[in-house]
Design a protein around this nucleic acid. Structure first.
Lengths: 238, 238
DNA sequence: AAGCGATATCTATGCGCATAGTTATACGAG
DNA sequence: CTCGTATAACTATGCGCATAGATATCGCTT
């Protein structure tokens, strides 16, 4: 690897330029980029090269290409899910298993909780306390439970850690859609969430970290018991 | 984003298939994949679609495309640098600055040091103790200093965290090549590295974490003082 | 007003041809 | 044996043409 230089192909250069235009041009989700025909004229390249560039951006979730009148690339704004998807490409290449994904969460979530306890502002505190995990229905449980963790990650004060934390979680939940704790265990989850929220909002970083570590360890044990084959499965990109 | 479905284009499907073949076929760095012409026959698609697929893999560092006789895609094996590069695409899209990169390191490295203290085996311990940071020359300093951190990340016991830690560091060092602490401060760095190594190898996780946190805080202060404009610069993909 | 069908406009993909650049290999000269 | 050159084999990129699919818009009918 040492001597291998990253070749800058036309497609990559165009993709980078388009990305810069999106970022520097104040474009937001839903913004329409010039059509392919217009871009061909603007960049003075062949259709193939432009298609390659657009595909790179599309596969990262930066744009979506709309066909039909008024069509062309539309800014979609990459999500943590997109980041997680791209990460799975690397994970697959490295043979990384879901066990490692869960283990990484085991490490990251307590750290995030500690940071949240140290960094959150008043509005975030109020939001966290208000966002109780619901056991009313399976749907409500799934939604509010995931929202709990995402909210904490958002409070960490660092967008990179937020992104990574979300992405790791997304990777798992893309593979196992709608993983439900059994109903009789959900009250325990709610209690754990509440205790964590209490620790975070009262600024008790040590306690937040400890409680989250315990909570995630419980989660990891449950996943291992519920999906024993899955945890040794290599993460695949798709 | 909720309703936006990731369209699976031909190019992406082929890229995924090629990646699976690389991973499942026991191919290693340097392995030659079939030539473009052969792949066109194998997949029964147009050259443009295949080119798009190969470009996706190439931009991620999975393959390199060799021209000339015996040419075609060659497995390169993605590095943490490649992962870091892809991450910068997302960081740019999010407007993430180098300050946040450094802050993320501030958080990750102490966690990694703690994990290393908890997880390393005897061989790793011996390796870490033997790998002293050299102040003999600028080159030696750069090399051994970076190697110190990489070695610790490798000892964390989790490849994802290893990958992320490396990638975050690579992002910064791709932007600032050969960042040198001034010679009069290097002995301090060496002392810090030695103390961290001692804590890790004696299994003192708390101490390892604390020392690394102090060390990284010093590093962050130095970077801020040395590159005040850089830290507020948005990370760019290139 | 709402729904349906037709039309226009775009992208998605394939095909064939072309020039240009890169690189491995073979051959000849010193 | 070594070095330089020529050749062959590959990719990189552009161009033009074609069919097919997706989607927005407009007009007509109910």
């Amino acid at each position: 690897m040492a001597g291998v230089k990253r070749g800058s192909k036309i497609a990559e250069a165009i993709a980078q330029d388009i990305l810069s235009q999106i970022c520097d041009g104040g474009l937001t989700v839903g913004s329409q980029l010039p059509s392919e025909t217009q871009m061909l004229a603007d960049y003075g390249v062949g259709r193939g090269s432009l298609r390659e560039a657009l595909r790179i951006l599309e596969v990262h979730g930066i744009i979506r290409i709309k066909s039909g009148p008024g069509g062309g690339p539309v800014v979609t704004g990459a999500t943590t899910r997109d980041f997680g998807r791209m990460a799975t490409l690397f994970f697959q290449a490295s043979g990384i298993t879901f066990r490692e994904v869960i283990d990484a969460r085991l490490v990251m979530e307590p750290v995030i909780a500690r940071l949240a306890a140290q960094n959150c502002d008043r509005e975030q505190r109020e939001g966290l306390l208000a966002a109780r995990t619901s056991t009313e229905s399976d749907d409500a449980y799934l939604k509010t439970s995931a929202n709990f963790h995402r909210r904490i990650a958002s409070m960490s004060g660092n967008r990179i850690l937020n992104l990574i934390s979300h992405a790791i979680e997304d990777i798992f939940h893309e593979r196992v859609v709608g993983m439900l704790f059994p109903p009789e265990k959900r009250d325990d989850v709610v209690d754990a969430h509440d205790a964590i929220a209490e620790a975070i909002t009262s600024g008790n970083a040590d306690e937040a970290e400890r409680l989250m570590r315990d909570h995630m360890a419980e989660y990891a044990r449950y996943v291992e018991a519920r999906y024993p084959a899955l945890v040794d499965e290599v993460v695949a990109w798709h």
